[in-house]
Structure formats: structure tokens, C-alpha cells
Design a protein around this nucleic acid. Structure first.
Length: 867
RNA sequence: GCCGGGGUGGCGAAAUCGGUAGACGCAACGGACUUAAAAUCCGUUGGCCGUAAGGCCGUGCGGGUUCGAGUCCCGCCCCCGGUACCA
């Protein structure tokens, strides 16, 4: 053992040891009931790790170690979300094939992960872009097709007319093509969809199973995303036609106040309008405005046009006009609404603009007087009402329904409509089916063949996987590169053997990540996505850790996929993840210069920038290291490639060691908070580790022969040390359960401070030559009686140091291994059966005294005071 | 607008059950050691008044409950995230 702490040397040594001894390899073992599946969201192999990754995987790694030390059989795997657009862009820009680019990145990042010393079971590594993996994406797709859950329909994509290519939402932000700047158009093409809407109800219901384990805000976001709303369909007969127009409403109770039916501009009913041509022009304009809208949030003014049609209110028999309006969405409900301006803000605004009559049919419930009946024929509240009354209340001017409460009327009127055949109770969702087609090369090919004679033919299971070709032309323009590879496209029909064409769309990468953690349970299985028994042992995931940006899409798709897997009998539970932790982003300063294109920016990596800071740490001036020219200081942004503000963990490892870097990112802030990256604080973590190291170094010889527990009296200092040690164990253990790593670290720092104090006060340090002595050796001339006394003290010191080393292991595994060995345990912590320290209840408890509080001689309460 | 989460020193933060507000760390300042620097160690560090002992104020703002409120209740202000005409 060196006198000084040399992180790199220690880290290299133990990483080698772990690898050779297979320390983190875990297998399903029915005899080990205590098992734990710890999972972090798998990374996209962009090329380099940054501190954001370090944080994410440090959180999970700490928990994995904690559970291992508690005797759990821990599955902690790692893999790559290796399909996706950046690989294709690299191909376009640099001509390097996506697979080559991706695999080079993976190799580099795997090396970085290993240098961080994360305790992954690397035998289980998976990558989405390997045929062994995406074969099962395709297999699942076929299973969904079999069950009618995969289907094809026409749906719009973003289209760049200049390059003749499909763009993602991101690539067409601002309504222009990100490469050539041409105005983006919508184009309708046939695409594959998965019927996630069939699972909407279960996705909502099963939330009760994970409540408490998932952050409330994630559950809320999912609930809103699914957007269940209960109401009724009501059919309005259209005058002089055989058509009925069906509307969806959550407020049937307001139907006597309907002044119009408003349909979406492209509603089929328009066909019957005498003003067909005008309405069409209106629809065309609305579509163009939508496409040009820069921000999705920008609300247009409500506009509409009278179609000239009249509809019959089935409740009142009244004739009301049919309008087309830009605020009615084709995709939601039935694409038609009844307009009740008195009780709906949007309808109110619309009615104001076009001077449509406003009729109030709901009154606030009043206890003083019954609501006044208004004359339905003449009542117009256009002036009286300054805004819509959207609350529930009591019905007025509503025929036989007047006097009823909204709650009751909503139910009863829907039932009435149902019994008379002009409507039904209904539930609608905001959730849309999941479009999985991508007009891209770098994804799992959709296993479908088109035959002129047989139509759409699924690829037979025995022919899976449909393998991506090695090479293709990547121009960034025109059709998908896959469509330009004849060897891929041309095939024969599995049914009739005639020449046929393959589907050239690939799958959304969310498909890959919807079930990958099941594959980890059985990563090499050639015959099934995974073995039932193995998955039953490990899954569901006990703790999942990742960014909140995946709160909706990924986590919803994953829940959907899990339910589907249950339906096909692969597993027997509904929810994939018991506990979810959404960690905050690591953000860092950005530095840039104006680029050549107007508005474009060239970003500099912080390591290439010299920054002059004020005393508050803000950058006052920055210059580029390479050319000495000034650079602009941008805002703090999420670390990543796009802003080039990623801090390379390799630099941190070189300067401070992986252990200090890992501990610092966990100590600096609660894991759910965003973390502003600044290197300054990491020094403090290193200082702490150095102190721990030098304590063990100083005491190691002496402590080897000292038992951990000694009965009998001890000095006040030793008693205090034992008390503090057990109190700390209790605190740290609880903090780990709640992933409160920052306070866990703080508690251990406090314990070390106590130890330092005790060392001085007890005279122990003096015994070895006093404060400042750097190399302490047990004196050979020590008398026996002294030794007895010292053992009493030292047993407490030993217990404290061992507990500290063990509790630090999840943060600083390399250092802990080294110190554990120095304290006389051979063979590595996990092999030698090191266990998380148990706290002694009586030692950990503080004595509490109840004090009566008296005011003017009267007892006013009691207070518990700790010693 | 709606939904969710927040607002505590110069900074990151702590206070898990209503009970000493600011643990732990960073930065800063002072000291020891050193030819010097680094490293290390010791000390000070919410604000105001005071030589001191000590006192007063202090958890976004205004009220309330309570012997006691950062914590509970009511009303506001501000920030962050999600969402966007969902009928």
C-alpha cells in the first residue's frame, strides 16, 4: 500500500481484478430469492461519454453495489441504443457506413465506461443494430400483425420538396428543411401503426400498481398524454340530406344552448354543402397556415365559414347552422362539435367573432332562489355574458331537463340519446396510435413483402431476421437509401414464389428500447426474445433510472409492450418497472462564435476555451485556446454533442480519479435536481477520499489484530465513536433506500470528522508520535496493560473505519477495495463476503428527554429534546 | 390558460414526524508548517448592533392555526418542467 492515494494506480488494479474474477457477473439462480434488477436507460452511442452519462450510471452503480453488499443477486447490464439518425448523417457527411461508425463509437464508449469502473455484467451487452437483436423487433412486429395490432394507414410526413426526402419533426422545425431551407410540405404516405390505443384503458388502470414507485409528475404526464375523457356521441340529422353528423361532447347537459354544429374543415360532410367550393378554399387555407406555423403553441385566431347546411338538435328539435371551423380537430373525437358559446370558452370566442346567438342554459347553484327560467326562443346573452360559464351547475331553459344538476343530466341525457338511437355514451382518448414506419436506412427493417398477386405478405418467422445490407448510397436526398439497394428490395413472395418487393421502411427506434431490458435476462437466446424462466426470475425491473425527457414516449411504449408480452404469454405481470427515478440533467456553459450562415453558431468545447471568471464564478471573458480570439459565452445547456459542451470523463479521471468523479456527481446535488457542472467542487471530494485513505494507511498495522467488538467499558471517546458510527450507518442505509446520495456522503464526511476529533481527544494519535506524524508504526516496546487499553479504543476505531470503507464502496468501489484489503481482508469485497454494516439499534438511538413547556405556570405542551 | 414541481447564506445544499434554520461541501478570509509555492492541518464565515458578554432580524410576499411554522391552512408573486384550441 502506498503512503499516498494514487487513484489511477488503484483503479487500474481493481478494474483488472473485477474483470478477471467476473465480480459483477450474475446469473438467474432459483436458490437465491433476494434478487435485484437495477437498470439505467441505455445510451445512444454518439461517440463520447460526458458527465451527464457519468451521473446517470453512477446513480445505478451505487445502488447495485449497495444491494450486492446486502446479499442480493444483482443484475446490472449495459447495452446500446445503436439505431438512429446520427449514424446516417455521418454516412451522408463523411461517407462512412452507419455500422462502422456506430461500432467504433461503441468501442470507444465501452472503454470509457470501463475506466469509470461501473459494475456492469458485460457478458450481457446488447446492441440494437445487431441482427441477433433486431430479429426480435421483427418477430414482435409479426406477432402484433397476427393479432391485428399492427396495421397500415395513410398518414402525413414532413416532406422537403427540394431534396425529395422525408424529414423528422426535428429536421423540419420552423417549417423549413434543416439542410436546404426549403419550405416543408406535408405529404400523405402509407405507414405502419401499432394499436397502442387498444391498451389506453389498461395503461391508465395499471398506474395504480406503480403509484408510489414512480414520480408523481411522470404519472401525471402519462395520464395527460393518454387524455381519457368521458362523454357522449350525439347525432344531428342534417336537413335535406340522409346524413347525420356525429359530435362528441363531455357536456350533453349544455345541448339546449347549442347554436351551431362546427365541423373540421376537411370533414366529409362538406361534400353535401351548397358552399362546397368556398369551404374547400377555406380548408386549403387552414392547412397552409398550419404547415407554416413555426411554433406548435402559436394559436391562430378562430375562423370559420358557414356551410349553408342546417342540423337538427335531437333534444330540442331546433334547427341550427353547420359551420366549418379551424379550431375543430379532425383527429380528435369525431371531428365535429356542437357549439355552446355560453358554456365553452372556444365556442364563446367563435360566437363573438361571427355574432352568433349565445344562450345560457346552466346556472350557478344558489341556495337563496331557484334559477329563473329564460325564454328559449328569444333569449340571447351575447351582451349579458362577458365570458363563458364553464362550471357544472343547474340546467335551465332545457325543456324537461330543466332543474337537473349537470352531473345527473350528463349521465341521464346520454342514456336517453342511446335509448332513442341518436347517440351513445362514449370515452375518447387523446392518445394516438403509434406510427412506427421510418423512411430511413439505419433501423430494423419491417418484415413485410409486397407481392402483386398476394398483396401484403408477412415474412415467415423462419426467414427472420430480415438483414440490413452492408452498403448503400447515402446522399441525404431522394428516397430512403434502403430503397436504392436492389439486392435488398427484390425478393420472392413467400406465398406464391413470384418476384416481389420488400418493405423499405424501418422501425422507429423506440421499438428497440421498448423491450431491451427483457433481452438482458437472456441476451444470447437464438430461439426466442428471451427465456420465460430467466425473465421470470429477474423481471420486472426493480429500479429504473433515466432522464425525465423520456417520461412519456419511451416509458409509455415500454409499458404498452410489456402488456402485449403478457398477452402473448411471455411474462405474467403488467408493469415493467417497479420504481422509477428521473434524474436531473447535467448542464454546462456553452461557448460559441457566429457561424457563416446567418444565425448559425459554431460551438467550442469548454476544454478549448480559456475563461476569466469573476468572484461568483461567472465567466467574464473567454478566449479560444487555439487562436486566442474571443468567444461568446452562451447559457447553461444540457451536456451533449449538439452544443459541444460535454465534459470528457477521461479528463476527470486523469485529474481526480474515477472514484472522486463518481462521488462528486452524486454528492453535489440531489439526483433529481439539475446539476450545473463546475469542476471546482470535485476537489473537495478528492480531499475527503485522501483523508479516508490516510486514516486507513495510518492505522492499518495496528488495527489488524484488533477485534471489531470488545465487551467492557470504553472511554467516552470510544463510546461516542460507536454511537456516531451506528447513527451514521442508520442514516446512510436509509438514504440509500431513498436514493439520497448527497446526504449519505455528507453523513460519512461527518463521521470522518468525528473520527479525526476522537483521534486527537483520546490521545491515540499522541501515542504514536502526535499530530503531524505521517508514518505511524505500532511501537515494539508497548506494555501489555497499555495494549489492553488501546484495544478497547481501537476496536471502536476499527469498526468505524470498516463501516466507512464499506459504505463508501457504492461511490468509490476502487478505493474501498484497496482499503478493505489494507484492513486485512483478501480476495475482493464481493468474493470475501463483505456485508453492508448493520446498525445496532441501541447504539444508534439518541437519548430523548421530554420537557414540559409552561407558560404562566400552565402546561402548554411537550417537547422532545435529543442529547 | 391548464397540469406538475419549486422559491432557504456568495454558491451546491441540509433540516425524513410541527421542535436549536443553514448539517456536509465549495468559494472566501485569517493562521500554522515552508526559503517560497503546492499539499496538509487549525480557525472564521446568514444579516445588523456591540470592545465584549449579549441582543435584534432572518427560509419569495401578505394573513391564519399552534406553546412552537422552512414544514400545516388561506390569498398572492416569481421561477422551472410538461402541454397546447382535446369539445
Amino acid at each position: 500500500m502506498d503512503e499516498k492515494y494514487f487513484p489511477e494506480k488503484i483503479e487500474e488494479r481493481w478494474q483488472k481484478f473485477w474483470e478477471e474474477s467476473g465480480a459483477f457477473e450474475a446469473d438467474a439462480d432459483a436458490s437465491r430469492e433476494k434478487r435485484f434488477y437495477c437498470l439505467e436507460m441505455l445510451p445512444y452511442p454518439s461517440g463520447f461519454l460526458h458527465m451527464g452519462h457519468v451521473r446517470n450510471y453512477s446513480i445505478g452503480d451505487a445502488l447495485s453495489w449497495f444491494r450486492r453488499l446486502q446479499g442480493f443477486n444483482v443484475l446490472h447490464p449495459m447495452g446500446w441504443d445503436s439505431f438512429g439518425q446520427p449514424a446516417e448523417q455521418a454516412a451522408i457527411k463523411r461517407g462512412v457506413m452507419p455500422r462502422e461508425w456506430t461500432e467504433k463509437n461503441i468501442e470507444h464508449m465501452r472503454g470509457q465506461f470501463k475506466r469509470m469502473g461501473f459494475s456492469f455484467d458485460w457478458r450481457r451487452e446488447i446492441a440494437a443494430h445487431t441482427p441477433e437483436y433486431y430479429k426480435w423487433d421483427q418477430w414482435f412486429f409479426l406477432k402484433m400483425l397476427e393479432r391485428g395490432l399492427a396495421y397500415k394507414k395513410v398518414s402525413p410526413v414532413n416532406w422537403c420538396p427540394a431534396e425529395g426526402t422525408v424529414l423528422s419533426n426535428e429536421q423540419s422545425s420552423g417549417g423549413v428543411c434543416w439542410r436546404c431551407g426549403a419550405a416543408v410540405e406535408k405529404r400523405d404516405i402509407e405507414q405502419w401503426f401499432l394499436r397502442i390505443t387498444d391498451y389506453a384503458e389498461r395503461l391508465l388502470e395499471d398506474m395504480s400498481e406503480i403509484e408510489g414507485g414512480w414520480p408523481e409528475r411522470v404519472l401525471t404526464m402519462q395520464r395527460n398524454w393518454i387524455g381519457r375523457s368521458e362523454g357522449a356521441y350525439i347525432d344531428f340529422q342534417v336537413k335535406d340530406t340522409d346524413e347525420r353528423v356525429r359530435v362528441f361532447t363531455t357536456r350533453v347537459d349544455t345541448i339546449y344552448g347549442a347554436n351551431a354544429v362546427v365541423v373540421a374543415p376537411d370533414h366529409p360532410l362538406i361534400e353535401h354543402s351548397p358552399m362546397k367550393e368556398d369551404v374547400r378554399r377555406f380548408a386549403e387555407r387552414v392547412r397552409a397556415e398550419r404547415a407554416a406555423a413555426r411554433e406548435p403553441g402559436a394559436l391562430e385566431e378562430k375562423e370559420g365559414i358557414n356551410t349553408g347546411l342546417l342540423a337538427v338538435n335531437p333534444f330540442s328539435g331546433e334547427l341550427i347552422p353547420v359551420w366549418a371551423g379551424n379550431y375543430v380537430l379532425t383527429e380528435y373525437g369525431t371531428g365535429a362539435v356542437m357549439s355552446v358559446p355560453a358554456h365553452d370558452e372556444r365556442d364563446f370566442e367563435f360566437a363573438q367573432k361571427y355574432s352568433l346567438p349565445i344562450r345560457r342554459v346552466i346556472e350557478r347553484i344558489s341556495h337563496e332562489q331557484p334559477p329563473a327560467e329564460r325564454d328559449p326562443e328569444v333569449e340571447d346573452q351575447s351582451v349579458a355574458m362577458s365570458e363563458a360559464f364553464t362550471e357544472y351547475g343547474i340546467l335551465v331553459s332545457s325543456g324537461d331537463w330543466s332543474g337537473k344538476l349537470s352531473e345527473d343530466a350528463i349521465r341521464e341525457m346520454a342514456e336517453f340519446a342511446e335509448s332513442r338511437g341518436f347517440g351513445e355514451r362514449a370515452v375518447t382518448y387523446r392518445l394516438r396510435d403509434w406510427g412506427v414506419s421510418r423512411q430511413r436506412f439505419w433501423g430494423a427493417p419491417i418484415p413485410i413483402i409486397y407481392c402483386d398477386a398476394c398483396g401484403i405478405v408477412p415474412v415467415p418467422e423462419k426467414d427472420l431476421p430480415v438483414v440490413l445490407p452492408e452498403r448503400a448510397e447515402f446522399t441525404g436526398a431522394g428516397q430512403s437509401p434502403l430503397a436504392g439497394v436492389p439486392e435488398f428490395v427484390n425478393t420472392t413472395c413467400p406465398k406464391c414464389n413470384a418476384p416481389a418487393r420488400r418493405e423499405t421502411d424501418t422501425m422507429d427506434t423506440f421499438v428497440d428500447s421498448s423491450w431491451y431490458f427483457f433481452r438482458y435476462c437472456d441476451p444470447k437466446n437464438p430461439d426466442a426474445p428471451f427465456d420465460r424462466e430467466k425473465a421470470a426470475y429477474w423481471a420486472p425491473v426493480d429500479q429504473y433510472i433515466g432522464g425525465v425527457e423520456h417520461a412519456v414516449m419511451h416509458l409509455l411504449y415500454t409499458r404498452f409492450w410489456t402488456k402485449f408480452m403478457r398477452d402473448v404469454g411471455l411474462i405474467d405481470f403488467d408493469e415493467p418497472v417497479r420504481r422509477l427515478m428521473t434524474q436531473g440533467m447535467v448542464v454546462a456553459e456553452t461557448f460559441y462564435r457566429e457561424g457563416e450562415e446567418p444565425g448559425s453558431k459554431v460551438y467550442f468545447n469548454p476544454s478549448d476555451v480559456d475563461a476569466v471568471r469573476d468572484d461568483k464564478g461567472r465567466v467574464r471573458e473567454a478566449t479560444c485556446v487555439a487562436d486566442g480570439q474571443p468567444v461568446m459565452v452562451g447559457p447553461f445547456e444540457k451536456m451533449g454533442k449538439s452544443k459541444n459542451n460535454g465534459v470528457d470523463p477521461n479528463d476527470m479521471i486523469t485529474a481526480y480519479g474515477a472514484d472522486a468523479a463518481r462521488m462528486f456527481v452524486l454528492f453535489a446535488a440531489p439526483v433529481e435536481n439539475d446539476l450545473r457542472w463546475q469542476e471546482a467542487g470535485i476537489e473537495g471530494s478528492l480531499r475527503f477520499l485522501r483523508r479516508v485513505y490516510s486514516f486507513v494507511y495510518r492505522w492499518r498495522e495496528v488495527l489488524r489484530d484488533v477485534p471489531r467488538d470488545v465487551a467492557g467499558e470504553v472511554s467516552p471517546e470510544a463510546r461516542r465513536l460507536r454511537h456516531e458510527t451506528h447513527r451514521t450507518i442508520e442514516r446512510v442505509t436509509n438514504d440509500f433506500e431513498g436514493l439520497r446520495y448527497n446526504t449519505a456522503v455528507a453523513a460519512m464526511m461527518e463521521l470522518l470528522n468525528v473520527l479525526a476529533e476522537v483521534e486527537v481527544k483520546s490521545g491515540l494519535l499522541d501515542f504514536f508520535g502526535g499530530r503531524g506524524a505521517r508514518e505511524l508504526v505500532w511501537p515494539p516496546n508497548l506494555r501489555a496493560s497499555d495494549e489492553e487499553i488501546r484495544k478497547l479504543e481501537l476496536s471502536a476505531v476499527r469498526e468505524t473505519l470498516e463501516a466507512l470503507v464499506l459504505m463508501l464502496a457504492p461511490f468509490t468501489p476502487h478505493l474501498s477495495e484497496e482499503l478493505w484489503e489494507a484492513l486485512g481482508h483478501a480476495g475482493g469485497m464481493l468474493r470475501s463476503g463483505a456485508r453492508w454494516p448493520a446498525f445496532d439499534e441501541t447504539l444508534a438511538r439518541r437519548e430523548q428527554v421530554e420537557i414540559a413547556v409552561q407558560v404562566n405556570g400552565k402546561l402548554r405542551g411537550r417537547v422532545l429534546v435529543s442529547d
